[in-house]
Every structure is written in structure tokens, then in C-alpha cells.
């Protein structure tokens, strides 16, 4: 069965996925809302930026992040200015990396849900005297529920399998940045194929179960727009 080092990697992975998904749902909501409503000529550019992690190799993201987190990079300079710890090789750094890496998987389903509901229900609620907050809580959120389920599960599942970014900025520290995919990679490299099989199986089943949950909860789920 899984030994303690592998269990630790699994725990780190689940924490990373959960925290990143939570951050993404909070940050993704206003962004997706704006993208679904705006007529700004910036919209195509922002759409493209959000979709970039879908097509960029994770190594490219990781490479830029590594440079950005270094002492010469903007993130590194910012952390020094506020007296914080450097982000590279830390769990916090991985969360930042994962948020960027999984951004489209959360923003796009939300954006879809928001545009599909249209302006009608909101206007109706406003006519009935519902305030801004009330409209959000009793109209938007229930209508966008399938979008939130899709966004949450996809963001979580995508972060579970994250490898290239973590490899570039993680530093493979047990108990802090050594995630499941990196542990699998190490096992393959050191010819421990048995343990690699076991961990890969865990990741495969977990990912399948999550996707199955999305498809069952949301039969009308559509694949991501490019």
C-alpha cells in the first residue's frame, strides 16, 4: 500500500487543489461576470489571456514564474518589498502557479453560465424590488449552480494533475512542494515502477471519479471553448 512519503505527497496535492480551487472561484467570479457582460473592446484580449494556460506548455508557465519569483522578477521584488518570504520552492508559490495554470478551467464554465442566463431574470428581479445583493444570492447563484459545479470540479481535477509548473518552481521538498505527480515522476526515474503504478492508479481513479461527478451532475455540460 501507499507508504508515508506517498501519503504525504497525496495530502499536499489535495490541499493544493482545494486551496487553488477556492482562490479561483473567488477571483474567477468577478472576472467571469465581467467577461460575460462587457462590451469592451478589451474583451477578446482578456478572453485570450484567460485561455492561454490551455494551450501553453506548463513548462513555459513554470519557467516564467520561476523568473518572476526570482530576485529580479516582479513577484520576487514585491515579496522583498513587503518583507515576505521568497515564493519559489514554497507551498504559497505553488498555489499562485496553480491558480494561473487552472484559470481557464474555472473562468470559462462560469462565464458560460453567466452569459447563458441572460439579462432577463436579473431585470425581472430588479422590477420586483430585489436589491443588488439579493439579485446575486437568489437569482444569479442558483441559475449558475451547474457552472459553479463544473468550474470547481474541473479546477480541482486539473490542479491534481499539475506537473510541469510544480517541477519548475517547486524544488521537490517533501511535505511542502512534493506533489503526487512529482512523486510519480521520481518513482519512474528511480525505476520503482511498482510504486509509480500504485500512485498513478490513485490519480487516475480520483480524476475519473471527479469527472464522472461533473458529467452526472450536469448532463448539459459542454466542453470548454478554445
Amino acid at each position: 500500500m501507499l507508504n508515508s512519503a506517498d501519503l504525504q505527497a497525496l495530502a499536499i496535492t489535495l490541499q493544493l487543489a482545494a486551496l487553488s480551487t477556492a482562490v479561483l472561484l473567488v477571483l474567477g467570479t468577478p472576472l467571469a461576470w465581467w467577461l460575460a457582460r462587457t462590451r469592451s473592446h478589451w474583451k477578446p484580449a482578456i478572453d485570450a489571456l484567460v485561455a492561454l494556460p490551455l494551450v501553453l506548455p506548463p513548462t513555459v508557465l513554470g519557467f516564467y514564474l520561476l523568473i518572476a519569483m526570482g530576485p529580479d522578477g516582479p513577484l520576487g521584488a514585491f515579496m522583498t518589498a513587503i518583507g515576505g518570504q521568497p515564493l519559489a520552492f514554497s507551498f504559497a508559490g505553488l498555489v499562485i502557479g496553480s491558480v494561473i495554470y487552472s484559470l481557464p478551467f474555472v473562468v470559462q464554465p462560469l462565464q458560460d453560465a453567466f452569459s447563458r442566463m441572460g439579462q432577463g431574470p436579473l431585470d425581472a428581479a430588479a422590477t420586483l424590488g430585489a436589491g443588488r445583493m439579493d439579485r446575486w444570492l437568489s437569482v444569479v447563484l442558483p441559475l449558475a449552480r451547474p457552472g459553479y459545479i463544473t468550474a470547481g470540479v474541473l479546477g480541482f481535477a486539473h490542479t491534481l494533475g499539475e506537473f510541469g509548473v510544480v517541477l519548475m518552481i517547486g524544488g521537490n521538498i517533501p511535505g511542502s512542494t512534493r506533489v503526487l505527480s512529482v512523486a510519480i515522476y521520481d518513482h519512474v526515474e528511480t525505476l520503482e515502477y511498482g510504486r509509480a503504478h500504485l500512485l498513478s492508479g490513485v490519480l487516475l481513479l480520483l480524476s475519473f471519479a471527479l469527472l464522472l461527478a461533473v458529467y452526472r451532475a450536469n448532463r448539459r455540460f459542454r466542453m470548454m471553448r478554445p
Binding site: L66, I67, D72, A88, L167, M168, G171, E189
Partner: peptide
């Protein structure tokens, strides 16, 4: 680093 190449990158980027 997963390889000596990546180790070099960690140092060259100042991290």
C-alpha cells in the same frame, strides 16, 4: 532540481 539542468536554472534565475 529534477536534473542538473534544472538545478542550474534555479541558481541562474536567482531563486
Amino acid at each position: 532540481g529534477e536534473s542538473i539542468g534544472q538545478t542550474y536554472q534555479f541558481i541562474a534565475s536567482g531563486n
